[in-house]
Design a protein around this nucleic acid. Structure first.
Length: 645
RNA sequence: GCCUGCAUAGCUCAGUAGGUAGAGCAACUGACUUGUAAUCAGUAGGUCGUUGGUUCGAUUCCGACUGCAGGCUCCA
């Protein structure tokens, strides 16, 4: 019987049924056959070897596409599981998906895998690839599958099958002696995986992501279409790790963290200079946008946290202390304090929206395992603000806020932001009608700003929905920085009210919002984004004046003074060292501009300018440099092309 | 908090199959007055994270603790 196969370009071919993806690919070119890993049949991903028996729209997936890599990575996970079962038969397999850049598989085994085991497993994986075992798809009866996996001691697999919806087709993939429950698609044989993979790390992971469950051993790997791609990836990671804010923080003498204060930062002069520049910038921007800055107490009686609901929900993560028979908590957040400020005096609807901002120092006793450099700490400062408004004002305020956030991120050189909308969780306060309106307001604000966003159902806070704005660190991990959250709960709990137009008392809506999130985290990301070479406006040392001979000392000092009088952060290096030595040192410190001063410059009132990232120097009048550099600073010019990563 | 790993000089790291440790850079001293990514010579610097145990002897082996790293969970 002949069937019509429609290709992505619309071309139609009549083929004898049944026909497989392999045969179709082969019919087009041998190259396509070599690079094919799966086939999309009527929108569904299929194995290349699965028989197509009726008319179909098809699209062949090749190994170098995202979809193709996904298949390869998923297969790599299966090959790893096969290798582990061969080497350590007592191990139970659970799940093994493909992920960004690679794959993992979670195993249950009494004995812990060692880093040396990874090498053994990888070697065995290569053998399995070499064996080129055929991978076959089999459709099983549900109960038969459960019994089979129970029978071979794979209790986790049996549990997965039991939990699958009744109508789901149970497919099992067989490669050599190894069988695994899987939806597919998979490669025709293990040989197609080739050698572009590597096992990277061992980790613990809870069964089904629940910390009450057993902890499994997860092995991570990375997989690519070929060895060359793999090497390129490993090289990229190696380069990226050089920008790690913890390394740069030490190398550039910005901050340190020590045992006695885990999760708290000791800021050094240069790091603090950046910190203050950022904070002052934010303060000025907030003022422009109608925020009023306040400051609230650090240590507050526990009763306020009980009223706000934080003590019962987050009590374990709060630092508490007692004095004079009273119990206090070091504030873990600023919101309840801001409500106290709102509550002073009688508020009118005419006062709304009221925007109260604070660079609020907060302390949270985060779990030790959660700490990470200066990105996740126990002591941090939020660029926090709370907007007290009416429900009708929510959408406009949120829209306005998103615009504000973009302006700030652009100034700092960030153009890639990940947006997530988190909606109502199971446990929540407020009526469904309230939630409907709030979620809609956030969604519309996102859409009106033409943003691509991701929905996180059930991830909202108990008091209201929120939008999260995340930035990426140097190795691609996402860190939430900005946020805007609607709160139906706290104003009421803490007695916030305003007099409405009709004279009645009303409870305002409260929007929690932050753009940087925490100054600490934001600086960490900022350092990584620029690989430590901050744009001139943010650089802790903007200009270094370096002398070539001691005869030029007086003039060099004059130059430095002139720069400082022009509001620039300038230092002078009069040390008795060769200019090459000084240039090297200050270049390693990534100072944006080095001004070299020798006899010639001193005589001519000039400076020899060497910009970071350039090997050339330009001699110009001091006034000209000051004018030019001033423009660069005031315009917050970002020169990402200067990064040597 | 959980799993795995790590902790040696200011920094980056080597080392000891158990006999109290070494390099480069930095620091200090001296010489060199220098033209754009390391001038030369010398000096000094460590209870080998803390704490128990095994041992004649522990930085090395074992345990506990603390911290860090990568994950997991959490993130008001």
């Amino acid at each position: 019987m002949s069937i019509s196969i429609t290709f992505p370009d619309g071309a139609v071919k009549q083929l004898e049924a049944p026909v497989t993806g392999v045969e179709i690919a082969d019919g087009i070119s041998s190259g396509l056959r070599r690079n094919a890993v799966a086939i999309v049949v009527n929108g569904e991903s299929w194995d290349l070897t699965r028989e197509i028996t009726s008319d179909a729209n098809i699209d062949i997936i090749t190994r170098d596409t995202d979809a193709g890599l996904d298949v390869l990575r998923h297969d790599a996970a299966h090959v790893m599981a096969e290798a582990v079962k061969e080497l350590y038969p007592e191990t139970q397999v659970t799940i093994g998906p493909s992920i960004e850049n690679g794959f993992y598989y979670d195993f249950a085994r009494e004995e812990a895998f060692t880093p040396e085991d990874l090498g053994k497993i990888e070697t065995r994986m290569k053998e399995i690839v070499k064996r080129n075992e055929t991978i076959e798809r089999e459709v099983w009866d549900r109960n038969e599958a459960i019994e089979y996996f129970k029978g071979i001691g794979e209790l986790y697999k049996a549990e997965i099958i039991s939990d699958l919806p009744e109508n789901e087709t149970i497919t099992v993939y067989r490669q050599g002696e190894f069988l695994d429950l899987c939806r597919g698609p998979h490669l025709p044989s293990t040989g197609v995986l080739r050698d572009g993979f590597k096992l990277t790390k061992l980790a613990g992971a809870y069964w089904r992501g629940d910390s009450n469950n057993a902890q499994l051993q997860r092995i991570y790997g990375t997989a690519w279409s070929d060895k060359k791609q793999l090497k390129a990836y490993l090289k990229r990671m190696e380069e990226a790790e050089k920008r790690d804010h913890r390394k740069l923080g030490k190398a550039l003498d910005l901050f340190h963290i020590q045992d006695e204060a885990p999760g708290s930062v000791f800021w050094h002069p240069k790091g603090w200079a950046i910190y203050q520049t950022v904070q002052q910038y934010m303060g000025a921007k907030q003022y422009e946008r109608g925020y009023q800055e306040i400051k609230t107490p650090q240590v507050v009686d526990i009763s306020l946290w009980e009223k706000s609901g934080h003590a019962s929900k987050f009590g374990d993560d709060m630092f508490t202390l007692s004095a004079d028979d009273r119990n206090y908590a070091i504030k873990p957040m600023n919101c309840p304090c801001h409500v106290q400020v709102f509550n002073q005096g009688l508020k009118s609807y005419r006062d709304l929206p009221l925007r109260l901002a604070e660079f609020g120092s907060c302390h949270r006793n985060e779990m030790s395992g959660a700490l990470h450099g200066i990105m996740r700490v126990r002591s941090f400062v939020q660029d926090d603000a709370h907007i007290f408004c009416t429900e009708e004002q929510i959408q406009e305020e949120v829209k306005e806020f998103i615009d504000f956030l973009h302006e700030v991120y652009t100034d700092f050189g960030f153009d890639q932001v990940v947006y997530k909308l988190s909606t109502r969780p199971e446990q929540r306060v407020g009526s469904d009608a309230d939630w409907d309106r709030a979620e809609q307001a956030l969604e519309q604000a996102l859409n009106e700003n033409n943003l691509e966003w991701e929905l996180q159902p059930g991830e909202g806070a108990f008091y209201g929905p929120k939008i999260e704005f995340s930035l990426k660190d140097c190795i691609g991990r996402l860190w939430q920085c900005g946020t805007v959250q609607v709160d139906f709960s706290m104003p009421g709990r803490l007695g916030a009210e305003y007099i409405a137009e009709d004279g009645s008392k009303q409870v305002p809506v409260m929007l929690h919002r932050a753009i940087l999130g925490s100054l600490e985290r934001f600086l960490g990301i900022l350092i990584e984004q620029h690989a430590g070479a901050l744009p001139a406006w943010l650089a802790p040392q903007q200009v270094m004046v370096a002398t070539i001979v001691t005869d030029a000392n007086d003039y060099a000092q004059e130059v430095a003074n002139a720069l400082r009088n022009a509001g620039m952060r300038a230092d002078v290096d009069l040390r008795n060292e060769k200019i090459g030595y000084k240039v090297r040192e200050h270049s390693l410190q990534k100072i944006p501009a080095i001004l070299c001063i020798g006899k010639r410059e001193a005589e001519e009132g000039a400076v020899a300018v060497r910009r970071f990232g350039s090997k050339q120097q330009t001699v110009m009048k001091l006034e000209d440099f000051i004018e030019q550099f001033h423009v660069e600073i005031s315009e917050k010019q970002v020169t990402l092309n200067n990064i040597e990563s």
